[in-house]
Design a protein around this nucleic acid. Structure first.
Lengths: 235, 235
DNA sequence: ATCAGTAAATATACAATGTATATAAGAAGG
DNA sequence: CCTTCTTATATACATTGTATATTTACTGAT
């Protein structure tokens, strides 16, 4: 400023405090994600909320994807999926109830987790507790992983449904299929009507117990097989 | 062409055949979706593949979202989810195996179906056959819908995983959590290694049977609660 | 045929976005 | 003070969706 002999005017802000950090960028991005949704997380918006030029962010974040990944990782890292219960079923239920709660607390997170390029490795944080519980329950390691994938997919999807509202069909397609969901209430096959307020929590609990009941059946089956050394057909 | 007396030069194409239709736009978009993925479906790319100006599309499609929705609807409308089998379990399994097959045949579809704004009402096409089968099996209507949502979410998610490759963590996060999946093979908790080629089909079958086993358990439970009604041949 | 009217394509333009590149302002060390 | 490195800025560009205005081709009445 005291120099000012160059042809170029002083830039946007004369005092540029050197205190921008990666954490601040992530935090600002997270705030935007929580308040306005994933669509609002633009580099310019994050920069503006930090009173900084868009390009300043690139000193702390290599790309927008990197930022989104860091946001998702930040959320998941600060979570605890271990309920500390002894019963495997309680443990798994707690784990995914927590997962779901986090997704609902941060609308837009499920969208990020659906995108492999963006989802951080820590999406698999709950895997550890789940695999431990399932292996303790007697499930094979392979089936444990398969079960885990079933559970994460289901949980993320359910949370995403809830966060972003149900499906809407603006135009009734072609009439041959009348099912549609509109607003919160929905109308589906053959004029069937369901409660205007869909209870996502109950639906999640139901789906979760479906899967866990299935796990129990699988365990029982493998136990029986091990006891009788006979081939189980399943079907 | 023969006229050409105006001050403005002949435009891009002198003969502009008036043969652009909504179906052609949808078809071109679908081709792009299948070949290059959802990211390649831009208005400009679709227009170019039809030898037409981007804005020409807007005479047949009200927006890009409308186009994407139409593409998804087109795929689903040309599908049949009714296997025609009598056993409810076979019926539901067929329905979602078909759903999955469609998602895999059209990579990028699952991405569209994950977006409520874009998913057409016909995502619920398989709902009819599923609800019929489940109600025939003795499940209540409410639980039938819940089960259906569990199944679609699971199926779409699984297909999406498979279509877009598993999660990748470029940088090992913070080390405390070592789980990650890289490439086709993946490494997870505590140095656990799994087969390099993950069998998505087997994982889907496993998850599906988990859910269906859970349904059976739910039916048994409600049967028992209702006293003893043995008319419905669950198992 | 001619001429208006309409529908469909074009041309142009603009705003939003991610990010490459070059530059300037401080801080650090000699 | 001078060099050098880091961090922020300024500018610019390519890509996207799409609004607006314009031009062309087709249609139907006269």
């Amino acid at each position: 400023m005291s120099k000012g002999s160059r042809s170029v005017q002083p830039l946007k802000s004369v005092n540029r405090p050197r205190d921008l950090t990666r954490d601040k960028v992530i935090e600002a991005g997270l705030a935007l994600l929580d308040c306005e949704g994933v669509g609002a997380v633009t580099m310019r918006a994050v920069a503006e909320s930090l009173n900084v030029t868009p390009m300043a962010l690139y000193n702390h974040v290599s790309s927008k994807d990197d930022l989104l990944r860091a946001i998702a990782a930040d959320i998941l890292d600060n979570a605890n999926f271990d309920g500390g219960t002894s019963d495997w079923r309680d443990q798994v239920a707690y784990c995914f109830a927590e997962f779901r709660a986090i997704c609902l607390r941060h609308p837009g997170l499920s969208r990020l987790l659906e995108t492999p390029d963006i989802a951080p490795g820590t999406v698999f944080a709950p895997m550890e507790v789940t695999l431990n519980a399932l292996s303790q329950a007697g499930l094979s390691e392979l089936d444990g992983v398969r079960t885990y994938f079933t559970l994460v997919g289901f949980t993320i999807m359910q949370a995403d449904y809830q966060s972003r509202g149900p499906y809407i069909d603006l135009e009734p397609a072609d009439g041959t299929r009348s099912q549609r969901i509109a607003g919160r209430g929905y109308r589906m096959v053959e004029g069937m009507e369901l409660p205007r307020e869909w209870d996502f929590g109950a639906a999640f609990d139901f789906g979760l117990s479906l899967i866990l009941d299935g796990v129990e059946a699988a365990i029982r089956r493998s136990d029986r097989q091990r006891g009788q050394t006979s081939d189980i057909g399943g079907e």
